[in-house]
Design a protein around this nucleic acid. Structure first.
Lengths: 259, 259
DNA sequence: GCGTTGGCTTGATCCAGATCATGGCCGGAT
DNA sequence: ATCCGGCCATGATCTGGATCAAGCCAACGC
């Protein structure tokens, strides 16, 4: 692994808070999750010390992956699920005409690979969009542990169930404005849930990826972002975004975020 | 429950195979799943007899529901998941403008309610489209049982994971023809997996529901079905469909069904 | 230096499918 | 019988966003 120059955010003042140092010690087996920065999110709850110790034996810290590296590829046999510790992961399928289909983006604290349990093979590619560090969980081992620790089983059920809902969100038929607003608000909420800024963050994915994910043309994404900026809703500079009027954006997106 | 006149299919010769009689005895606790017609599908695997007995204590047969009856409503507290024994269930959300959004249709042998685990409340309505019989599983009890029986835990993980993939399918951006073809082929495959005819079946949902689910206008659904019929791909009569050229339909849909 | 390449923006045009309007059919209520 | 409402089909028109085309800019290799 050696000495890795972690240049997570280079110059501009983004919302990234504590300069996460993945090379720091993982802590002892009783509280590694607290140094893992997102441990209490990906496997929360008041686990007692033996439970944490069991988890610690199970998890494997992997990375760094560089932008463009693949974490797993479609049709590889399913073995592990991953939690993002740092960076952003894109999951996507490629149909036989070579057209890419972006399934989603995974931020720090979120899981990747849950959709592979059923087919027992990864149904999609997982690609690092920037410098990515992961926690890797052998799924068979995790499932075995879950039979002993109901809290972990419960958390796995919750994570899986939540992903069903997430996947359904984007399935509906809404306007380009509504979809873009919902995308920005969802990102903001997810960053906020992880302790990052909810108003300033970096779009680690290319415009084309956003477009693909929202089922729009890249040109439309450009135009909608510009429109939002002209209306004073956001400020865009390269890939850095600042939400200037989140309430208004949320209002535009409320039909998608239902509730 | 009394003597219920089960008129599952009234006159026309659909693909429905064995006239399922939900009033028949549920069998003893050692093999109730074999009389439940779909038991080996919703909870398959070679469970030993004690496992089956445990399951039997857990499951509750409910129904009949009539067309339009709700099985659960959005925001009701989550308590149970359901397996469809007979009939078709539609799940849908309604946004605050009153616009309906059809999430999916659930055929015999399929589960309903898995997306409610995470929010701990049902995130959608579940509506019977015709005469519906269900198996009801208390989820807390099922989860508890799953800690003792790894096979059941495994199956729950698989079901949840499969639903993520299913939800992602319709999320992509394809033409009306492709979406309609995929819809028909998926229905055929799902019926086939349950032992029904893969070429003749009944669309228990209204055209408007299909349209909504596929993010099309009802008029477009009409036109596409007519076009398919004119091309000799299918034969439509009211809500009964016969697939005349499944390979061609599958070819049209292959980009959605990826693989 | 210069050309190249990839990501992004902007304008002009086009089209699949939405929307609007109409009418037919069927089944249940009066 | 008659009415009414839900469902479905079909033709005419409209439009949001895709597509095509052109150009900008920064990073990179030679």
């Amino acid at each position: 692994m050696g000495n890795v120059p972690v240049t997570m955010s280079s110059t501009r003042p983004t919302g990234r808070l504590p300069a996460f140092d993945p090379e720091a010690g993982d802590g002892d087996e009783l509280n590694f999750c607290s140094t893992c920065a997102f441990g209490e999110v990906c496997l929360p709850g008041g686990f007692d010390k033996p439970a944490l110790k069991d988890l610690h034996c199970l998890v494997e810290h992997v990375g760094p992956y560089r932008a463009g590296d693949s974490i797993f590829r479609v049709s590889e046999p399913f073995e592990s699920i991953f939690a993002v510790r740092a960076g952003t992961v894109k999951t996507c399928t490629v149909d036989e005409e070579g057209r890419e289909q972006v399934l989603g983006f995974h931020l720090p604290g979120e899981m990747v690979g849950l959709n592979a349990i059923h087919p027992a093979r990864y149904p999609c590619d997982a690609i690092a969009l920037d410098t990515v560090y992961l926690c890797r969980f052998s799924f068979p081992a995790l499932a075995m542990l879950a039979t002993r620790l109901p809290g972990i089983q419960q958390q796995l059920f919750r994570l899986l169930s939540a992903d069903i809902g997430k996947a359904a969100l984007l399935a509906s038929d809404y306007s380009a404005n509504e979809r873009m607003a919902a995308f920005l608000i969802l990102l903001a909420d997810r960053y906020a849930a992880r302790g990052f800024s909810a108003t300033r963050f970096r779009l680690s994915m290319a415009r084309g990826d956003i477009a693909n994910h929202l089922r729009l043309a890249a040109e439309t994404v450009s135009r909608v972002l510009r429109r939002f900026q002209d209306q004073g809703l956001i400020k865009v500079e390269e890939r850095d975004v600042e939400l200037l009027d989140s309430p208004q954006l949320r209002k535009m997106a409320r039909c998608i975020l239902h509730g």
